[in-house]
Design a protein around this nucleic acid. Structure first.
Lengths: 192, 192
DNA sequence: CACACCTATTCAATTTGTTGAGTATAGGGG
DNA sequence: CCCCTATACTCAACAAATTGAATAGGTGTG
């Protein structure tokens, strides 16, 4: 229901095209909301019909033209109203945790590999977030930044993303160690 | 798509009724997958049709009868196959992060309250997880547990849940502090 | 003894989300 | 010059999730 609001929030940081938003949602904003390009285009369409965003075609010479969306007054008002409503508790969908839940009835090798993949992914996302953080801070310390900037919101959500990926790295490491140690002491057994 | 597998994984820890699973998914298993009761009942139905689980009616004297589901051999095999496939990257849906992203164009008071709510919720979930952990460890140390138990999977996912709630507490605290400090130095302004 | 609340589940309608393909232009490498 | 990749979208079909209500017996409270 509130991909719409996630879009409005993303656009509150400045106008963007559907394609740009798609990349942000696929890569970056996945910190707090995930969606496929098709969803974004569809919902942008609807937001436009509802007068929450307005589109403007930007002619480009060396690439296809694009439609750039920005918030309207109504959109900004809707977003404000949304921020005043209590938020639903966060929802997670994590296949790896499901797999791990059932690890005791399988070969743990696959889980160890999956944990390594997860850790690697987390490292890359963290690196990306760190770069973004440097850009946002622009040489300032955190305290200065908090005092000066009008972008505290994005910074705080970025920090949530960073902390989450740091957690993933630590946790994946203990998963790997635990399952590996177990695998050594009881090679291919399954049982208490 | 893989609520089915989440159900199979939950049932791999022992049989349960739809209602019991609904509570687990609402409260506990929300660590890694979230779903409403209706979804569970529907998917249990389908899993039964597909021969992945079998149902058995348990007559109860002082409450309505219930149907208790357990894994079949086919279900266990499907679960094993699932654990060997690569997992999709985790997906998050976090309304509060969306709200916070847009905090710079609103009164931060609402966000501070929401952060406090989040922190309180996290504390309660953490307390629940800690109790569950005590029960799983049953007086043993972690090292012993890892060596002895056939429940390493659930323990590791529980640890993920614990770490996640600890993160929420820490993060919500910095959000509250940051926004409060800002609110003091610039009472009701909105700008750089 | 009425009323709210808990167990335990089902039905129907609607909204969201996913998958896969298809269109079109441009730039770079071999 | 062909193919691959990137930009920038659109369409259609399907699967999954959400919302709201309904049913129905039992328990505890005032």
């Amino acid at each position: 229901m509130s991909l719409r609001h996630a879009l409005l929030a993303a656009l509150s940081q400045g106008e963007a095209s559907g394609y740009e938003l798609a990349k942000r949602f696929d890569v970056g904003v996945a910190e707090f909301w995930s969606a496929t390009p098709q969803q974004l285009y569809r919902d942008l369409e609807r937001l436009e019909q509802d007068g929450m965003v307005s589109a403007r075609v930007v002619e480009q010479s060396r690439r296809p033209n694009k439609r750039v969306f920005s918030l309207t007054a109504a959109g900004r008002e809707e977003l404000r109203a949304f921020t005043r409503r209590p938020a639903k508790p966060p929802a997670m969908r994590d296949e790896f945790l499901v797999q791990l839940q059932a690890v005791d009835l399988t070969d743990p090798g696959a889980a160890v590999e999956a944990a390594a993949t997860r850790r690697e992914r987390a490292r890359q996302k963290l690196a990306g977030y760190d770069q973004l953080r440097e850009r946002m801070l622009a040489g300032r310390g955190e305290t200065e930044f908090y005092a000066e900037s009008s972008q505290v919101g994005p910074y705080l959500t970025l920090m949530a993303g960073r902390m989450y990926e740091q957690l993933n790295i630590r946790w994946a490491t203990t998963v790997i160690e635990t399952l590996t140690r177990r695998g050594e002491s009881a090679p291919a057994a399954d049982g208490e």
